[in-house]
Design a protein around this nucleic acid. Structure first.
Lengths: 335, 335
DNA sequence: CATCGTTTCTACAACGTTGTAGGCAACGTT
DNA sequence: AACGTTGCCTACAACGTTGTAGAAACGATG
C-alpha cells in the first residue's frame, strides 16, 4: 500500500537518490527529470517515512510539550499557542501529560520519548534541579519558576512584580483586609512562593500588616480547591474585603463559594486571579486578573528551542522574560 | 552521549542480538547472561531508539489524537482521558490541533503524520466521508457524528435522544417558549443537526409549536458566540422562558448575556447546556447539562484502535455508543 | 555411543532514508 | 586538442533495530 522512494524511482526511471533529492529540494536536478519524479510521486501518493528519515538525519520535526494537566485551562490555552508557534517552524507537537507527579516528570525529562523528539518544552510542577542535572540528551526549554537554576533555557514572567501590582490595585481601591488563596507548604509551587512574596511586598509598601489567618493554602489549583479555601476562610470567621487568588481557577472557585455564602462580588468582597483564562472573561462577575502574554511565552519557548537545536547545544542556559498586563474587570468593581 | 545496543553488547561481552533479546524479554537467555546485560544497560543508561525500532517493526507505540481546538474545555478534558486510556496500553499520545479547518483535517487524516504513528483518534468538524474514502494507511477511530458512513470505526453518543431528554426536562418544569442556540446552516455540524432534531422531537411530543424565531445559529461554539446569540434573541424581542444551548460553552456565554440583560437564571429564564465541562459545575448559577461519559468515550476509542491494530485491518467498521446522563443543577432550578 | 531435541547464542540481512564519493557529459577556457 | 569546471546523476554505506537462519553446547533418550 505504502510506497517508498524505490517505488517512485522505478516508476520515474531514475535512482533512489534522485527522488530523494527532488523531495528535499536539491538544486541540481534537470527540470524534466524533476517533473517526471514529481509526477511519479503524485501518482503513487508517496510520503516520506519519518522514522527512516529520523534514523538517518537525527531529526524528527517533532517536539514535545509536557504540562501537568491538559484540562487546566491555562495549560490548554498555552498548548494551543505552542502548537501554532511550532507550526511556523514546520514542527509537530507531541503533548505529554505528567499529572504533576515527580516520577512521571522525571520519566518525561530523562526521555522515554527522547529518541522520537528533537526537543522538549516543559512546565514542571514537582521536578527539582537535581532531577535535571544529570541529563544528557534532548534540548529542553523550561516554563515557569519551578526549577530556578537548572541547566536549561527558561521562559518566565516576573511573578513577584505582577503579584505586587495586582495586590496594589486592590489596596488602591480601598481594600484593607486582603486574603490570599493558593499558598503551598511543600517545596513544590515556586509560583506560589513568588506570588505570595509579591503579595506581602504590596502589603508592606502600603503599611498594612501581614495577617497569617488571611492566607489560605490550596493543595492543587483547581476550582474545587479555590471554593474550599474560600469556604474555609469564611467559616473560620475571618472576613476579608478582597481576595487575591494565585490563579484564575482558584478565583472562579472562590467566586462560587462567595456566591453560596450570599456575599456579593465586588460590593462585599473583591476578587482577583492570575492567568487570564477565557472563563474569567465570561464569568459572573468577570474576573480581574494578571494576564501573562501566553502567545509570547509560547513563541519565546519555541524560539529558544530552535536556537538550541540549530546552534550551540553547550552554550550557557538563557532565561527570557515574557510580558504581562493587568486586566481589570467586574470582580474589582469595573463595569 | 547516547548509547546503542552495540555499546551495551560490547560492555556485556555478548552479541547485539542478545541484548535486543534481553530488552524485549525473550525467554531463552541464561540468567547470568541476562544479569550481565541488564547491568550494562543500567550503567550506560541505555534506551532504545524508537525510530529505529519503528523502522524495523512497523510500530511506534505512539497514537495521535486530533481535535479541533485544545482550549475548548470539552476537548481538553477528553484529551486527558485519552492520554490516560492510552497509557494502559503503553502508548504515548501525540495531540494534533486541526482548528476545524477541512484542509488541515485532511492533512492529518491522510497522514502527514502517518509514518510516525500507529493509529489515529480523530474528532472531525469539517471533514467529509469522501475525504476519508480514499485513505490507505493508518487505522483510525472517529469521534462523533460528523462522518456518518465513513470507512472507520466510530464512538458516538445518542445525540438525538440526549437532546430530546434535556429539552423534555425543560418542558416538564413548565417552560413553553424554549429557545435553542447553536444551530448551523452549513453542512458542518452534524452534532448541531442531531441536537436540533432532538429538540424538535421533544417539542412535538409535548404538543408545542416549533418557532423558528427561537432558534439561533452560532458559527462556532465558543462562549462569545453563545453570548452574541443570546443577545440577538433578546434584542430581537423574542422572550424565551428557557434556552437549550448545544454545548456548555455556548451556555456559559448565554448566562453572561442574560446576566447583562438583567434577567435572572433560572427564575426568569432556565438554561441548559451539553458536554458537562468543569466550568459548568462552578458557574453562577451552576449549569444543567447533558453529561456524556468522556472517560468511557476515551476508553472505547482506544480499545477500538487497539483491536484494529492487533486484529483484522480490513474488517468492517464498527460503531459503539457511549452512555450519558442528565446533570440537573441550578440553571434549571435545582438547588 | 549415536542420535535427537532443546537451550542459548550469534551472524546476517533488512526496514526507508540521506550523506559521501564519484562518474559522465557538456561547456568554456587555455 | 587538452584541460578544468559545472551540472546532473548514481552506487554505496550507514543510521539502530529486530526477524530469520543456523551454529554450538548440553542433556536426554534409545
Amino acid at each position: 500500500m505504502r510506497h517508498r522512494l524505490k517505488d517512485v524511482a522505478e516508476r520515474a526511471g531514475v535512482s533512489v537518490k534522485t527522488v530523494s533529492n527532488v523531495v528535499n529540494g536539491y538544486v541540481h536536478v534537470r527540470p524534466d527529470t524533476r517533473a517526471r519524479v514529481e509526477e511519479a510521486i503524485a501518482e503513487l501518493n508517496y510520503r516520506p517515512n519519518l522514522s527512516a528519515r529520523h534514523l538517518r538525519k537525527g531529526r524528527t520535526g517533532v517536539i514535545a510539550l509536557a504540562v501537568p494537566e491538559l484540562d487546566i485551562p491555562y495549560f490548554a490555552e498555552l498548548a494551543r499557542y505552542v502548537v501554532n508557534a511550532a507550526a511556523a517552524y514546520g514542527w509537530t507537537v507531541l503533548i505529554d501529560q505528567t499529572g504533576g507527579r515527580r516520577e512521571q516528570e522525571r520519566v518525561v525529562a530523562s526521555g522515554i520519548t527522547d529518541h522520537l523528539i528533537d526537543g522538549l518544552i516543559f512546565s514542571p510542577l514537582a521536578l527539582t534541579a537535581e532531577d535535571l542535572a544529570g541529563l544528557d540528551g534532548t534540548p529542553m526549554v523550561l516554563l515557569g519558576e519551578r526549577v530556578e537554576h537548572g541547566p536549561a533555557d527558561r521562559v518566565v514572567i516576573d511573578n513577584v512584580t505582577a503579584a505586587r501590582e495586582i495586590t496594589a490595585h486592590l489596596i488602591r481601591l480601598g481594600h484593607r483586609r486582603i486574603a490570599a488563596i493558593g499558598s503551598q507548604r511543600t517545596d513544590e509551587g515556586a509560583s506560589a512562593r513568588l506570588r505570595l512574596a509579591g503579595y506581602t511586598d504590596a502589603l508592606r509598601a502600603a503599611g498594612l500588616d501581614y495577617d497569617e489567618t488571611l492566607v489560605a493554602p490550596a493543595a492543587a489549583w483547581h476550582r474545587a480547591d479555590g471554593a474550599a479555601a474560600m469556604q474555609g476562610l469564611l467559616t473560620s470567621g475571618v472576613r476579608p474585603d478582597a481576595v487575591f487568588c494565585f490563579n484564575d481557577t482558584l478565583a472562579l472557585g472562590a467566586l462560587r463559594a462567595l456566591h453560596e455564602a450570599g456575599l456579593r462580588v465586588p460590593e462585599d468582597v473583591a476578587v482577583v486571579g492570575f492567568d487570564d483564562i477565557e472563563d474569567g472573561r465570561f464569568s459572573i462577575p468577570t474576573l480581574s486578573t494578571v494576564a501573562p502574554d501566553k502567545e509570547k511565552i509560547a513563541q519565546l519557548a519555541v524560539e529558544l528551542l530552535a536556537n538550541r537545536l540549530d546552534g550551540d547545544r553547550t552554550a550557557p542556559a538563557r532565561e527570557v522574560s515574557a510580558p504581562y498586563r493587568l486586566e481589570i474587570r467586574e470582580s474589582t468593581g469595573a463595569r
